[in-house]
Nucleic acid binder design. Structure first.
Length: 568
RNA sequence: GCGCCUCUAGCUCAACGGCAGAGCAAUGGACUCUUAAUCCACAGGUUGGGGGUUCGAAUCCCCCGGGGCGCACCA
């Protein structure tokens, strides 16, 4: 009710106020609950779910237009106390659907339950109202006959989207629809804004991302995706803990950004008067922990990269990184394929999945192929680190791969691979043997000079993980850092800096270690069949809405110079 | 950052140089078994913002803003 958009101030409020007053009047007229539920802590009587409310009738003359919403208030400030402080549902929609599955049409069970949720559909039938209540588990029909449901008139006037609590009897209608016959009900929250079309829902991506709270109620797939994400993370933790991995938390603020080739966000700590970077990877801290004696560690780390947005990139995203002492890259390959197959089996019941309409086989073992082999598959010519620079450059030109004079053969190979081969992969493949030149933290290959024991897992044409036998040698690491620093000095924003403390840690001795980083968002995309990373990130990074920017500007400025360094 | 597309009622969409419309939601009413209920009535708009062309602009052009996709960068 009262959802006419943009009403003139003060108009349209009267009838609404009156009916609303009734909605809030919870007098039970002799039809009180059989068992009064006690809520609040023992000894205190803070609001009773079905009890009388004081003050509701005072609202008729005090209505005024809502300051923010386009729709007028239906509950005045003085009415607010009639919303109970607690509510105790003892059943869920899905739980009832499961428990009473197959209940015969017309049966009244005599079982009373208390449920709560949003009213998502409503169908009036004169002296009978049908509703559909949605909670986090699912939906169930409400059955409200005039001679049974208290404040029947008001029940029929509830807005789609209102939260209500209901006590009622489990029954099946004559048509066989499982329902709860409403014996008591109370308003738990009104919606002052109309919900989107009950059939078409919400399709505008911008609105879905900005107002995820609405999207989650109206878009089934959205809920499913995020539930899957939650389960995936939980299963991953359990799986790793079962294998002796210890979960840790390392700093988000890094004095020296490291662990990945990426542009960091910068910020400033006032008390330390210190520039800090938001981490682009937790890698160097986790390897310090191996030095410190944690033999198997992992972190599910939110990381931040100051780079473009795309359907596959969000500036903040979640990486699982893990490090296992005494393991090498082959151990990590097995770990990755087993973990992913385990997650697919647990979440989807199979390793034969469909992604974006195309079959995808995640079953173990995954294919192994060298980076050079995959390039050759695409361009029909063998290449390697010993291919003359001129030839590699010519090949790049031939395949529209841009290159710079500073690129050595390793970088040229990587560029060729990424532009010609990576996107062509579909079923999982471990791409092995990355050049040292492009792998500043990976240990040199035990047999091939110029190469590292590094691999990436590619699934559905995109990188899912990056892993290697870790570089142990402090002198080699220092040399690699210095090469990176040279690039950085030459203007490469993504190059690493020399991290003296990390080198000191290596001086104390890092044992042979296998390490891994998996993009959790992309893994969820794969298993949730999501086309965009924004479908698996609850609140993806967006340009702020205009009026929010002005609010932020007005509230900012506490006089410190840090204001100019705010990370946006 | 560049290119293409897009923005119309709360939501989903029409109208594509000639009176801005429909369905759902809302509002008033009818209905005791509905399933996106149905039926009657009623209301709802600075067509993202600004400028221009035109007798006339939601429609064509320019600028600005939001978003989507692609490229670039990356995971």
């Amino acid at each position: 009710m009262a959802h006419a958009p943009r009403p003139p101030p003060g108009v349209g409020a009267q009838p609404v106020a009156r009916s609303l007053g009734r909605v809030l009047q919870t007098g039970d007229g002799g039809r009180g609950p059989k068992r009064r539920r006690r809520i609040g802590r023992p000894g205190r009587s803070v609001g009773r779910p079905w009890g009388q409310r004081a003050g509701w009738s005072a609202c008729a003359g005090c209505r005024r237009p809502s300051p923010s919403a386009r729709t007028p208030r239906r509950i005045s400030v003085t009415d607010r106390p009639s919303i109970p402080y607690r509510f105790d549902p003892d059943a869920t929609a899905a739980g009832l659907q499961e428990k009473y599955d197959g209940l015969e049409a017309g049966v009244e069970t005599g079982d009373e339950v208390t449920i709560a949720g949003r009213l998502m559909l409503r169908r009036g039938q004169g002296k009978l109202v049908f509703g559909q209540l949605a909670d986090s588990s699912g939906r169930i029909q409400l059955f409200a006959p005039a001679d049974v449901t208290p404040r029947f008139e008001d029940f029929g006037k509830l807005s789609l989207g209102d939260w209500i609590g209901v006590r009622g009897e489990v029954m099946a209608t004559r048509k066989g629809e499982l329902s709860v016959k409403v014996l008591e009900w109370t308003l738990l929250a009104e919606t002052r804004r109309p919900f989107p079309d009950k059939w078409h829902g919400m399709t505008d991506p911008d609105t879905r991302y900005r107002q995820r709270y609405v999207d989650l109620w109206v878009t089934e797939e959205a809920r499913r995706g995020f539930q899957l994400r939650s389960k995936l993370v939980s299963l991953t933790r359990r799986w790793l803990e079962d294998r002796g991995f210890v979960e840790v938390e390392t700093p988000v603020f890094h004095p020296i950004p490291g662990g990945a080739l990426a542009r960091p966000f910068t910020t400033h700590h006032n008390a330390l008067d210190q520039e800090l970077y938001l981490r682009v990877a937790p890698e160097l801290y986790l390897k310090r922990l191996i030095v410190g004696g944690f033999e198997r560690v992992f972190e599910i780390a939110r990381v931040f990269r100051n780079e473009g947005l795309s359907p596959r990139h969000n500036p903040e995203f979640t990486m699982l990184e893990l490090y296992q002492a005494y393991a090498d890259w082959t151990d990590i390959m097995r770990l990755v394929e087993e973990l992913v197959a385990h997650l697919a089996t647990e979440l989807l019941g199979t390793t034969s999945i469909t992604y974006q309409g195309r079959d995808l086989d995640l079953s173990v073992p995954w294919r192994r192929a060298t980076l050079a082999d995959l390039i050759e598959e695409q361009i029909g010519r063998p290449v390697g680190l010993d291919t003359p620079l001129d030839e590699l450059r010519a090949l790049c030109d031939e395949h529209d791969v841009p290159w710079k004079d500073s690129y050595g053969p390793g970088k040229l190979l990587l560029e060729l691979y990424e532009k010609t081969a990576e996107g062509e992969q579909w079923d999982p493949v471990f791409v092995t043997e990355y050049p040292i030149e492009v792998s500043p933290l990976a240990r040199p290959h035990r047999e091939l000079s110029g190469m590292t024991e590094r691999f990436e897992g590619i699934v559905a044409g995109r990188e899912l993980c990056n892993a290697f036998s870790e570089l142990l040698d402090p002198d080699d690491q220092r040399a690699r850092f210095e090469d990176q620093a040279k690039d950085k000095a030459a203007g490469d924003d993504e190059a690493m800096a020399v991290d003296e403390d990390y080198l000191r840690a290596l001086d104390y001795g890092l044992p042979p270690t296998g390490g891994l980083g998996i993009g959790i968002d992309r893994l969820v995309m794969l298993l949730a069949d999501a086309a965009s990373i924004r479908d698996v990130v609850l609140f993806p990074t967006l340009r702020p809405e205009q009026d929010q920017v002005s609010v932020a500007a007005a509230e900012g400025g506490d006089g410190t110079e840090a204001d100019t360094d705010r990370v946006v």
